[in-house]
Amino acid sequence: MAILVDRSTRLVVQGLTGSEGRFHGLRNRSHGTDVVAGVTPGKGGQDVDGIPVFDTVAAAVEETEANTAMVFVPAPFAADAIYEAIDAGVGPIVCITEGVPAHEMLHIHAYVHVRGVAMIGPNCPGVLSPGKANVGIIPAEIFREGSVGLVSRSGTLTYQIGHELAQLGLGNSTIVGIGGDPVVGSSFVDVLARFESDPQTEQVVLIGEIGGEEEEKAAAFIESEMTKPVVAYIAGFTAPPGKTMGHAGAIISGSAGTAQAKKEALEARGVKVGTTPTETAELVAALVRA
C-alpha cells in the first residue's frame, strides 16, 4: 500500500527540461517511478532521455494519463504551474520549489481543498514510498521498505532519522516531506490521517520544528483519531525568537511556536518525543519490538 505515491503513480514533471528537473526526474525514474511526461511551455515535442515533453499539463494528461505532478519550476512561476496541474485534473501535486510567496500559498491552499486535490509542499523534499515510487529529491538509497510512516517539515533531518532507523533494521512505508514554509498544501494532520488508514503503516514518526501550531494540532489529532503509535522529534529548542531558522516557516513569533510548547503538547497527548535524532529512532525501534 503506502500513501500518496506508489506503483500506480504516473508522474508528469513540470520543469523537466531544467537542470534540477532533469536530474531529479531521471533519478526518480531510476528508482522505478513511472515518469510519463514533462511539461515546459515552448518545448513541446522534445524529449528528456525518452520522456516526452509537452507544452501544457492538459496535453500531457491527455497523451500519457499522468495522475501525479511534480513541480520543479522557479518560485516566481510555481503558483501558475500548481494551478495548471490542478485544473488539468492531476493530483497529488508535489511542489519542490523553495521561495513561493506566502500570499500565493494562502490562495492555493484554499483552492486545493475546495477541489479536493492532495498537494505536498512547497519547499519540500517530496514523497518516497521505498520500493514503489519516489517523487522528489529524497535519496531513496538510504531508506528501506517497511512499516514506519515518516512525516516531516525538513529534508536532511528526515534523511538523518530515516538513516538511523535503517541502521536499527527498520524500514518505511512512505516518507512525506510536507515542507518548511508557513503555509503548505498538506499539514501534519492531513498526512497522519492517510497513515492511519494505510495498512502497510504500523508506526509513525513525526518530525516537527519551531513556528506555527501544526504540531499542536497533530497532537490533538493523534489523541482523538489515531490508533497507531506516533513518536516525534522537534527541532529548534535553541532558536531565538523572531529569527527565521533557514526555513521560511521556522520562526518563533512572540511567545508562539516554540519547540518546548510543541514537545509539551505532544507529550500531554501521550506521544513520546525524542531529545536527539538517535533517541527518536531508538524510541521507534522499541515500539516495533514491543
Partner: peptide, 21 residues
C-alpha cells in the same frame, strides 16, 4: 550543517551535551 532542520537539530544537540552554540 546542511539543511535547515538538520542544522537546527545540530544546534540543539550541542546544547543538549552541555555546550553553547
Amino acid at each position: 550543517g546542511n539543511g535547515a532542520g538538520l542544522s537546527m537539530a545540530t544546534v540543539d544537540v550541542v546544547t543538549f551535551v552541555g555546550g553553547r552554540p
